[in-house]
Amino acid sequence: MPGQVTFTIDGKECKAQEGQTIVEAARANGIYVPTLCYSKYVENPVGACRSCTVKINGNNGAACINRVQEGMNIQVYTRQLEDMRKAIIEALFVEGNHFCPACEKSGDCELQAAAYRYRIMAPRFPYRFPSRHIDFSPKHLVLEHSRCILCQRCVRKIRTEDGKKVFAYHHRGAKGTVEIDPEIARTMPEELAREAADICPVGCINFKGKGFDRPIGTRKYDKEP
C-alpha cells in the first residue's frame, strides 16, 4: 500500500501509515506505549515527560514525537526502559506535592494511574516538598499548582478565539510553573474552562464547584490503571 511502512516493535512486525508517530503507530497495532504529556486531543506533542522513551534503532527517543520509518526497530518493553519510566513517574511525585487521597482527580488522574501501573509504593528519590501556590482568581477555575506536572497540554491546546495563549510556561528549571492569563481568566467562557480542566491529566486545573462528584468504583482508573 502506498504510504505504508513496516517496522518492528519488540520483535513483532507492525504496519502503519508513514508519518505517524511511534505512539500512534504502536496503538494502531495494539501495543500501548506509556504516555503522560501526550494526548490524542492535543496537537504538537512536545516530548516533555519522557515516559514514552523507547529505543529506536538502538537509540533512546520519545515515541510521541518520533515518526515511524520503514524498517525501524523499536523496543518498548525492556527492563531498563520500564525502570526508567518508573523513575520518571517517581521523579514527578517528588518534585511536586501529590496527596492523592485528598485530590478531586483521584481515580481519574493519569499520574496516579501510572503510579499504580508501575506499582510504586514509595519513590526512590527523596521528596522535595516545594512550596507552590493555589490560584483561585480565575472565574471558573481553581489551579492547584502543587499537582502540576508541566505537561504543557493546556499551554498547547487552550487558546482564545483570536488564537492567543491562555496558559503559558513561566520561569524555568525546578521553578517552572504553568500560569493562566489574568485577564482572560476573568472573562473566559465556561466551555473553554471546562475544556482546560478536562485536558489536564492531573488535579491541577479544576472546574469550580465540581469535585468528588462520582463515587469510588466508577472513576476512570478505579478498575485498572
Partner: peptide, 16 residues
C-alpha cells in the same frame, strides 16, 4: 539552574 524545565529527567533529576 539553567534547565529550561520542559522535560522531567532534567528538570526534576538535576535538583535531585
Amino acid at each position: 539552574e539553567e534547565s529550561c524545565g520542559a522535560c522531567v529527567p532534567c528538570r526534576a533529576g538535576n535538583p535531585i
